[in-house]
C-alpha cells in the first residue's frame, strides 16, 4: 500500500519517526560525549557521530536508499572530492616548514614573540599586560 502511487517509493511514516528519534538521541549523545574529557578522542568521536547522522538523513530522509543508483554515485563523488581537497591541503599545512630554510613559525607569531620578549624591558604598562613575566 505504501508503494501505491506512481511507482515511486513512499517511505513509511514509522521509519521516518524512528530516524527522527535516532537523530535526536545522537544529538544528545554528541553533546554528552563532548562534556566528557577524552583528550585526543573528542574530535574523532564528534565527527563520527555527525557522519552517522548524515548517513541517516541521506539514506532515509533523502531516500537515496530507494533512489536511482546514479544519484548515490553523485553523492559519493562529492564526498570523495571534499576529502581530496582537505587531505591534499593538509599535506601542505600540517607539514609546513619541513624544508629547513622555511621557518615553521608564521611571521605574525614571531613578531608577537618578539614584542613579548621586549615587553618586560620597558616595564610599566607592558608588565601589567603580562602578569606571568612579573617579579
Amino acid at each position: 500500500m505504501d508503494h501505491a502511487s506512481h511507482g515511486h517509493h513512499i517511505t513509511p511514516k514509522s521509519l521516518l519517526i524512528k530516524v527522527f528519534g535516532s537523530l535526536i538521541l545522537l544529538t544528545i549523545l554528541t553533546v554528552a560525549v563532548s562534556r566528557v574529557h577524552l583528550g585526543a578522542l573528542n574530535v574523532p568521536v564528534a565527527i563520527a557521530i555527525a557522519v552517522v547522522k548524515m548517513m541517516l538523513v541521506v539514506t532515509v530522509f533523502m531516500a537515496v536508499k530507494w533512489d536511482n543508483k546514479v544519484n548515490a554515485l553523485v553523492i559519493g563523488l562529492s564526498a570523495l572530492f571534499v576529502s581530496i581537497f582537505l587531505i591534499f591541503t593538509l599535506f601542505d599545512t600540517a607539514y609546513r616548514g619541513d624544508l629547513s630554510n622555511v621557518d615553521r613559525v608564521p611571521i605574525s607569531d614571531q613578531q608577537r614573540q618578539q614584542s613579548a620578549e621586549m615587553a618586560p624591558a620597558d616595564a610599566g604598562a607592558a608588565a601589567s599586560e603580562m602578569p606571568a613575566s612579573g617579579h
Partner: peptide
C-alpha cells in the same frame, strides 16, 4: 530534475567544503 538537484547539491557541498578546509587547517 531530481538528478539536476543532486548535482546542484554537490556544488553546495563543494562550496561549503572550502570553509571546512579553512576550519581544519
Amino acid at each position: 530534475s531530481k538528478m539536476g538537484m543532486w548535482i546542484f547539491l554537490v556544488t553546495e557541498v563543494l562550496l561549503f567544503s572550502g570553509m571546512f578546509v579553512a576550519y581544519t587547517v
